[in-house]
Design a protein around this nucleic acid. Structure first.
Lengths: 337, 337
DNA sequence: GACGGTTACTACAACGTTTTCGTAAATAAA
DNA sequence: TTTATTTACGAAAACGTTGTAGTAACCGTC
């Protein structure tokens, strides 16, 4: 069984292809009885317009791309869900590309999107991305871009973020108030603006509470799994080990739990831990993990909504629109007295 | 800046469009120096062929669809990662559709894929799917289908699963050997074949160990979040409450933890818990969770590989090829003596 | 120097839509 | 009745690519 097209419908109805096309798009140029005949037959023959012919003709694909570092992570998974929800509502299709935190892959993806395959792109940068020319090229080809979470600072485009600086402050302050005096900040690639912001909040809190700023307490974990593990182990085995840990990303909190377990350090007695995280099991961990939870689903929805506003040009969207959604502190046992 | 096309290249080079097209596809009909000229200019002008024109002409989109119930779940997230990895290797693009466990959405998606938008589809059924006519229609339109995990039994198509029956047996037996005598099986929609298989393994183990088969111990949690919670609470508050729980899906194990905590039941002392799960935090839970872990990433890769074999027709793929990858029991504290 | 064969290209149609332009017929205005 | 205007449709071009068919130019052959 092969696809049915306009020509076949037209033949069957003794109408021209253009009339059928117009009837299906409910054009005012077509009389009501004719429209009805067309609708009926289209339904009976299960006509589905060929999207590629349509895209070719209209220069619009009703498809967007989502480019993210990984998906096996509740934050990105929820963001995708948000994006997909809005997209389906609007009749759009969603292509997904995983960069695996490799800028080379991010560039390859960007390059493959230059040709009109998608009408717009939603991006969260990978940790190794330093310059964003590959993304600028997309914009130059009139493909709107929207960033979420891991945004590019020096890039004029709509962005959806959380209040990272403030959250970094809140997280650090929470540790201080729980009695910590040597607070480590575990973070990922410093080329990411979220890392900077969270670090900024961390430093602000230290200053506010007049705690020393020890560079050794800021650990950049942008290497591989093993290297990170090694670095954390080193951190916790040093004689000046931290009594509080602020993990910028979930993965680092999980590793901290493992390292502490291996070294026999008790959480929260010896080390208190707080982390940016959307783990569903945060409250079930041993001990339950105090988190800064980002509204991942809503961020996805918001990013998609902004993109579609630009695509549909119904509203004027400023090219540098910024939306900042608040993250939420959820206090649990890992930071208890 | 607008997209450059074959015509522009041809004009610039004083060649015909067809020559340029063929040169770019490295046809033997074109002389080496001409090819070189074309390649050079194409590169200089950053030519990217229009995928829609190409798809329209060739009746191939180099795009596949992945249709899954949810993504905020490590199993499906890893499967997507596997699929995307293989797809990118092969130069394919991946559309993602979330059905949110709603058969209506699954049907809508299937319908929207009838028109050649994708060359093939990878599906994991949603719990509410009873009949699969909407998917059969896809096959009838010559769109190959591959199932993974939640397969449709009475459907002739390649399938990638885990050894669900065996794993159900192993899980149950593990509980028996840990001393459980009243073992509950928490499962989802019974219209899913994985549910049947796991249930079969569960029953087999009960018989092997000569334990009574109490229908009240098999709980079908296919309602909403609240209803499931209510059912579990009821189960654990009854005077004939289970001393062991085999959760067919992760979500139910997480809920079991919450319910037990609320009711003051201790795991593993009062109730032992084992679950199908790919939680990265299984070992960090309180208590750490004994799991049956599915090779999600490999299942995704395998499903994609099977699909591409069919699409590329390099090998003859039997329409009912089945691949069964083993799940792995990982014993942790939730089932300890 | 007529003939078959190869090489390296070009012209043109086709894919299935959408859209622009055109036009008969019906209706309204003069 | 003639002339505008509206209604309802059709013909054909266009989107950018690919495949089929065709053909000059050159080669060697007898």
């Amino acid at each position: 069984m092969n696809a049915v097209n306009l020509k076949q419908l037209a033949q069957e109805l003794n109408l021209s292809v253009s009339t059928v096309s117009r009837a299906l798009r409910d054009s005012w140029e077509i009389s009501t009885p004719t429209k009805q005949r067309v609708f009926d037959l289209a339904k009976r023959m299960n006509f589905q317009p060929n999207p590629y012919a349509s895209s070719l003709r209209k220069h619009r694909s009703r498809t967007i791309a989502v480019v993210i570092p990984e998906v096996a992570n509740n934050f990105f998974a929820l963001a995708i869900k948000g994006i997909e929800t809005v997209a389906r509502e609007k009749g759009y299709h969603v292509l997904i590309y995983l960069t695996n935190e490799e800028v080379a892959e991010e560039m390859a993806v960007a390059s493959s999107l230059q040709n009109g395959r998608v009408d717009g792109v939603i991006v969260s940068l990978c940790g190794s991305t330093q310059d964003t020319r590959h993304l600028m090229e997309l914009q130059q080809r009139n493909i709107p871009l929207v960033f979420f979470d891991r945004v590019a600072d020096n890039f004029i485009a709509p962005k959806v973020t959380t209040n990272d600086c403030e959250s970094g402050y809140v997280a650090t302050e929470h540790l201080v108030q729980a009695g910590c005096r040597r607070i480590a900040h575990l973070t990922i690639s410093m080329s990411l603006s979220i890392s900077h912001r969270r670090q900024e909040g961390y430093v602000n809190a230290l200053r506010r509470w007049e705690l020393p700023e020890d560079p050794g307490m800021v650990v950049h974990c942008d290497g591989g799994e093993e290297e990170t593990y090694r670095m954390l182990k080193e951190l916790f085995m040093s004689d000046r080990r931290p009594d509080g840990v602020f993990a910028s990303v979930e993965k680092l909190a999980v590793m901290t739990y493992h390292v502490c377990r291996e070294l026999g350090l008790r959480i929260p007695e010896d080390v208190k831990v707080i982390s940016f995280s959307n783990l569903v099991t945060a409250s079930l961990l041993n001990p339950s993990l105090t988190t800064i939870a980002q509204p991942a689903y809503d961020m996805g929805k918001e990013a998609a909504t902004m993109l579609f506003r630009r695509l549909e040009k119904k509203y004027i969207v400023l090219p540098d629109d910024q939306v900042m959604l608040p993250a939420k502190l959820e206090v649990r046992n890992s930071t208890m007295g």
